[in-house]
């Protein structure tokens, strides 16, 4: 292992072919992520954040440009990059516990049954799912499903975490508990994280760098270095510097969101094109 960065995106572009022509979604995104870094991506809805994450996960290929993990081109998905999907993807045919332990039963990360049990139980406890171990997902709330998805991804201890609005369905309290839990997990396991979020506050609290992307097609608008020391605690929210940075960043982000709104007025046709999922299915 040389000191090659964990993750490199080099002039990555992605476009989709729709019935109404070519839709450029990601445009010239270049980014280098070092070991142990925590990168947040903020940008307006529909700009291409999930697409960027999918490409890093190896679920979609870029139209042009390269993506490297530890210096090697990304060929496909793998257990080294855990993903928390925006729409959870909790397996409906498995109980909460089996969902959480699923990754640990696969050959790629198989461990002894007793260890598996222990890890699953620990996360059930940490995620506040006690009493629901044997429940099927149909009986869970959105926020509970999201916590199952989080636990399932944490359980396999992948060294890179790709998180797509992982706390979106949680109430304010659970959200802050989950943020702190994530910080705790990072502290003990040393992961590299790419997080997509709409919350400037969340990004500031968790990240080492924040990437603000433009309205579709996603380009990097600015990258903000977050100056706060680790370990971070709740009190950080109350510091003056945090408040100032939050205010500045919100300005930048708001401008992009406004731009997106304007774009949407112009190309109703393009955004109205039906999304087909065929492409990834065989990917």
């Amino acid at each position: 292992m040389t000191a090659s960065p964990r993750l490199v995106l080099d002039t990555v572009c992605k476009q989709f072919e729709g019935p109404s022509g070519v839709l450029p979604v990601v445009s010239d995104v270049s980014l280098t992520v070092g070991e142990g870094e925590f990168i947040s991506i903020i940008g307006p809805s529909g700009c291409g954040k999930t697409t960027i994450l999918n490409m890093i996960a190896g679920l979609q290929r870029p139209t042009s440009g390269t993506l490297l993990v530890d210096g090697r081109p990304i060929a496909g998905p793998g257990a080294d990059r855990g993903v928390i999907f925006q729409d959870y993807g909790v397996f409906p045919w498995l109980t909460v516990k089996d969902n959480i332990a699923f990754g640990l039963t696969l050959r790629a990360n198989r461990i002894a049954k007793s260890d598996r049990e222990q890890i699953a139980n620990r996360y059930i406890e940490l995620m506040g799912l006690t009493g629901f171990e044997n429940a099927y997902p149909k009986t869970l709330s959105g926020g509970m499903k999201q916590r199952v998805a989080l636990a399932r991804a944490y359980a396999i201890k992948s060294s890179i975490l790709l998180m797509d609005e992982p706390f979106g369905a949680l109430d304010a309290q659970a959200r802050s508990a989950m943020q702190n839990l994530l910080l705790e997990v990072l502290r003990s396991e040393g992961k590299t994280v790419v997080l997509v979020t709409h919350s400037v506050e969340e990004a500031l609290y968790l990240s080492t760098r924040i990437v603000v992307v433009t309205a579709r097609p996603a380009r990097i608008r600015t990258i903000v270095d977050v100056p706060f020391e680790h370990p971070r605690h709740e009190e950080l929210h109350r510091s003056q510097r945090f408040g100032e940075l939050q205010y500045e960043l919100r300005e930048v982000v708001m401008r992009e969101y406004a731009m997106q709104a304007r774009l949407r007025g112009e190309d109703v046709r393009a955004s109205g094109s039906p999304i087909t999922h065929r492409e990834e299915r065989r990917a």
Partner: peptide, 10 residues
Amino acid sequence: LFIRVARTLG
């Protein structure tokens, strides 16, 4: 989606 989830879990 479920297939993609499983892939990313290895």
